[in-house]
Design a protein around this nucleic acid. Structure first.
Length: 345
DNA sequence: AACGCGTGGCT
DNA sequence: TAGCCAAGCGT
């Protein structure tokens, strides 16, 4: 039996029941695909339901404030996805007359939509025969065909895309794409794949050669950087504080946080008091205490943030204009929301 | 073309 | 535990 038929047969018996599979509404499918980029189904599912509820159509999304979109996205990570989603919703409403683009070529022009996402939407919603290549597809194909080209090399990206495209069932491309991804997620898992019950076992090169654990091949990982964050948590006598929006290019763009003093290494109270930033913000006497006796280490994929929360109480601060009760309306990183939960409990 | 971008689950 | 990985994309 040819690859696609065997795969789809497996899929029909094993597929997961997921809400975005009940529809061909391209806006809903688009939303689900953006949420699921580098994100597990279990983590993204609630966000999908919340977004569909808050923004039932692309018009609703386009008309929202960016901070509202980010607030709903809070906790999901990779926040550029939310900003690009919102940007593209406005583009669809304003430039495309509210009509979702219908071909791969047009869909891939949306900001935040690359080859994978455009292929997924085009195949699932518009029956265009464009093969998806995500982490699951790399794993399934590298194992089944015994390909050791690094999946994150430019040669590998081309090779696997062409291979996937050669295997796709043109008459049911959307089903094929979902099938190969579900197969990778459920059966051909990264660790401990279910080879003993696998319908492809007798023709899988990696299984036959006992190389399952060696594939796929991935080139070097990047080094993790340590950073030292000191948040100045201001509390005035009339229950006000300061939050600042993160601008620029780094992490958490568009999210809010307490005023931040970043240092080269961990600092103590004396270091804090003698810093330029501290003296500019607090020319008069204030009460300072370190909230977390042990450094909080917040781990991002590429940075470890060694964090201290300094509680600074004072009578009045001219820039402190956010009521403590209003903090919950602002989108904040998980690091900040974890602190707030502990501090306010 | 390599790197930056979050968070959480699994081993 | 520390590292790997997850329905990738932008620059």
């Amino acid at each position: 039996m040819i690859f696609s038929n065997k795969l789809i047969l497996w899929y029909l018996q094993n597929k997961r029941d997921l809400p975005w599979r009940k529809t061909k509404n391209p806006y809903h499918v688009w939303l689900s695909e953006i949420i699921l980029q580098q994100t597990r189904v279990a983590q993204g599912l609630d966000y999908y339901l919340k977004f569909i509820d808050a923004f039932p159509t692309v018009n609703h999304l386009a008309n929202a404030e960016e901070s509202t979109v980010l607030k709903l996205w809070q906790g999901l990570g990779y926040y550029s996805r939310a900003r690009n989603l919102h940007f593209s919703a406005k583009y669809i409403v304003n430039e495309l007359n509210g009509e979702f683009p219908k071909t791969y070529k047009e869909i891939v022009k949306l900001k935040g939509v690359g080859d994978y996402t455009a292929s997924a939407i085009a195949s699932m919603c518009f029956n265009e025969s464009t093969a998806v290549v995500d982490g699951n597809v790399y794993r399934v194909l590298s194992r089944y065909f015994g390909i050791d080209t690094p999946i994150n090399s430019s040669a590998g990206i081309k090779e696997f895309k062409a291979l996937a495209q050669s295997l796709i069932d043109d008459s049911q491309s959307g089903t094929f794409n979902q099938a190969i991804m579900d197969f990778g997620a459920i059966q051909c898992k990264p660790k401990k794949p279910l080879c003993l019950f696998c319908p492809f076992a007798d023709s899988c090169v990696a299984f036959q050669k006992n190389k399952i654990d060696l594939l796929p091949v991935k080139e070097k990982k990047l080094k993790i950087k340590n950073r030292y964050f000191n948040f100045l948590v201001i509390k005035t006598a009339d229950h006000k504080t300061i939050l600042k929006e993160r601008k620029g290019k780094g992490i958490w763009q568009g999210l809010y946080q307490f005023p931040l003093l970043e240092s080269e290494k961990s600092i103590d109270k004396n270091d804090l008091i003698s810093s330029e930033m501290f003296n500019e913000m607090f020319p008069n006497e204030v009460s300072i205490s370190l909230f977390n006796k042990k450094e909080v280490v917040h781990k991002l994929s590429h940075q470890h943030l060694h964090t201290q929360f300094w509680i600074i109480e004072l009578n009045h601060q001219k820039d402190a204009n956010i009521d403590w009760k209003a903090i919950e309306n602002y989108p904040v990183p998980v690091l900040i929301s974890n602190f707030l939960e502990e501090y306010l409990s």
